[in-house]
Design a protein around this nucleic acid. Structure first.
Length: 465
RNA sequence: GGCGGCUUAGCCAAGCGGUAAGGCGGAGGUCUGCAAAACCUCUAUCUCCGGUUCGAUUCCGGAAGCCGCCUCCA
């Protein structure tokens, strides 16, 4: 079955078909590397990871591009404040970004183009827009004239003419023909210090929006399948990208626009002012596992505002524990009789999972199916009515589902010699029926983050999530 | 001022015309030296008021509350 996605362009769920059979090309707006990314950013990146993994699950080949914005007002300002070269400054946060997405189990995209490495492509597009009269120049600054693009506003569904002129129209923008025009190229001024490029269109630096138009075209072509980002990028960023790309190429830019809703923290928008601003690092420092962050940020449909709380994070961690325990315990199960139910339980789950995600990545019912399956298989296991073959196909099903969810903790915890010895000591103590000593060791291990489980086949251990 | 979204059990969250998935938490039980894990049982008339309908959480109208966007914030 074809998946359906909610397309911001039409505000309806549409059946998704890539331009090229079996190959999906998507552009996902990436980070501005001027600081550590916060959990709101990661919500969007995780939504994109879910989309990517699901498309692969469905059998598509995926070519994903995620840009790294390493030149803009914020990066320049911060680098200059620190008195270090821009490249050095952004390199630090690029590295941090990749460390973070690795921790969250976000699959790598095929391309991570950097804005600063694509100045010629941007210049070429600006020249083209200028030649086609979509752009005009004032004092070396190139602006896009939205008056020349009648469809402007079609994505955000905004009537630009009716926009109320707000206080945010900054004083330095008086020179533009229209307040809604945006910069394609910013001529150098002293605030930029030594950050500039000498190009055919002058000395300066690109505006923010042009990088996405130029780089998506380079890696994905003039028209491609999916473009995603946070809702806040819908306007003006994505609207401007459409104006630039469609103006320059005269072709439809993107077929499907998918936007993820905002993350709130404690019911309000995250901001440093409210002291509810968290990076991934902040949360890991508090002792939570990255995979729990992955779970909580992914487990709510991407088009719904998600309220992040630490209570929610604890709840996510506990649910994940069950998910992971199920898999680990099933692996150790050696098989029994069969009631014949196994097959249908597994098939029902896989179908339900796929049907749910086909419906605009509706992950809640998809997870519901998985947890139903976990309970049903555990029941059969508890009754001794799950055969070895059924166990194997249940494990396969779990792995298949997890190729999309990424909730299984794959890294085999290496056995620490000290832990081993303590477990042995405890087993000895238990044999002597010295339960006080045995429980003492168990408590000690718990303090080290190791949970013990006595099973029929001996004592098992796992790391606390 | 314009535009959009949301309101379902203690918390999170599906469903969107036929009488409420799932997760977490909680209560009781089985198992266990005790735990843990696991299983079983229990834990909601869906913000309010009207209307349409044989029937509404689901459609329509209204009210209240909350959140977001409206030029560089995912």
């Amino acid at each position: 079955m074809l998946p359906k996605f909610f397309n911001t362009l039409t505000r309806t769920k549409e059946e998704f078909k890539p331009l090229e059979d079996n190959h999906v090309r998507m552009y996902t707006c990436g980070p501005t590397v001027y600081d550590f990314a916060h959990i709101g950013n990661f919500r969007t990146f995780l939504f994109e990871d879910l989309l990517r993994r699901y498309l692969k699950f469905k059998g598509y080949k995926v070519t994903q591009v995620m840009n790294l914005t390493d030149i803009d007002d914020k990066t320049i300002k911060s680098a200059m404040a620190k008195k270090i070269p821009l490249g050095e400054f952004t390199a630090f946060y690029k590295r941090a970004f990749f460390e973070d997405i690795d921790k969250l189990g976000i699959e790598r995209a095929e391309y991570y183009p950097e804005a600063t490495a694509h100045i010629p492509e941007m210049v070429a597009m600006i020249k083209q827009l200028h030649e086609k009269a979509y752009a005009y120049v004032i004092d070396g600054n190139y602006y896009y004239s939205i008056a020349k693009f009648p469809e402007y506003g079609k994505l955000a569904h905004l009537d630009i003419a009716g926009l109320k002129a707000g206080v945010r129209i900054a004083a330095d923008e008086y020179e533009k023909e229209s307040v809604s025009d945006f910069a394609l190229w910013k001529a150098w001024d002293e605030n930029d210090g030594d950050i500039y490029w000498e190009t055919e269109i002058g000395k300066g630096r690109p505006g923010w929006h042009i990088e996405c138009s130029a780089m998506s075209m380079k890696y994905l072509g003039e028209t491609f399948d999916i473009h995603t980002g946070g809702v806040d990028n819908m306007f003006p960023h994505h609207e401007n990208e459409i104006a630039q790309s469609e103006g320059a190429n005269g072709k439809k830019f993107v077929n499907f626009w998918l936007h993820s809703e905002h993350l709130l923290v404690d019911g309000i928008k995250m901001s440093k002012r409210y002291n509810n601003y968290y990076t991934l690092r902040d949360i890991l420092d508090k002792g939570y596992a990255a995979v729990a962050v992955r779970y909580i940020l992914m487990a709510t449909n991407y088009r719904q505002q998600l309220n992040f709380t630490f209570d929610g994070l604890v709840s996510a961690r506990n649910g994940l524990e069950r998910y992971n325990d199920f898999y680990a315990n099933l692996k150790d199960y050696s098989g029994g009789q069969t009631s014949g139910e196994g097959k249908s339980i597994i098939e029902r789950m896989l179908k339900g999972f796929e049907d749910a995600l086909d419906d605009d990545l509706n992950i809640s019912p998809a997870l519901g199916e998985v947890f139903d399956f976990i309970r049903d298989i555990n029941r059969l296991k508890a009754e001794g009515l799950l055969s070895r073959e059924e166990r194997d196909s249940a494990l396969n099903a779990m792995e298949r589902v997890d190729s999309v969810l990424g909730f299984l903790i794959k890294k085999k915890a290496e056995i620490d010699a000290d832990i081993e010895n303590l477990i042995k000591e405890r087993t000895e103590a238990k044999k002597r029926r010295d339960f006080a000593a045995a429980d003492g060791i168990r408590r000690k291990l718990l303090d080290m983050g190791i949970i013990l489980e006595d099973t029929a086949s001996g004592t098992k251990w796992k790391r606390k999530l």
